[in-house]
Amino acid sequence: MTNILEIVVSFLLVLGAIIMLIGSIGLAKLPDYFTRLHAPTKASTLGVGCILIASMVYFSFDLGRLNLKEFLITMFLFITAPIAAHMLAKAGLQYKVKLKEDTYNKDLSAKAYLHKAPDED
């Protein structure tokens, strides 16, 4: 029993850490601001979720009682991550960050900054 528990917890820990590392690699290497926004805000959320769930499972068996505390952090991060991403995207539009040269529909970013419909002048 403890063996299976250890294997499951170790697997979740390593998986979570790898996902978070990939998110950070994305932050370091992707070409422009909006693509950089994608990798960390979501990959990191899933990765930290994996690690928190591993900790939750381990302590539930280790202490012999239900331990759901880490679940609260997971939920909180999943609720706040899109809001933080949305605010960061708005800040990027405001700052008029440089877009990657071959971004498709580049002119839509100017429309989005002015809160206009795409067919409006």
């Binding site: 917890v9 820990l13 979570g16 850490a17 978070m20 998110g23 950070s24 932050l27 601001y33 950089r36 926004l37 960390p40 805000t41 990191s44 959320t45 990765g47 930290v48 690690i51 928190l52 591993a54 900790s55 381990y58 280790d62 880490e70 952090i73 991060l77 933080a84 960061l88 800040a91 990027g92 700052y95 960050v97």
Partner: peptide, 28 residues
């Protein structure tokens, strides 16, 4: 740019949460 630095800080705090949880697991 400044927004890039904000994303970096945002990711950093998520990573540090994971690091703290791992420290707790290691020390039991």
């Amino acid at each position: 740019t400044t927004p890039d630095r904000i994303i970096a800080v945002d990711t950093m705090y998520i990573n540090s949460i994971a690091l703290i949880i791992l420290l707790g697991l290691y020390q039991g």
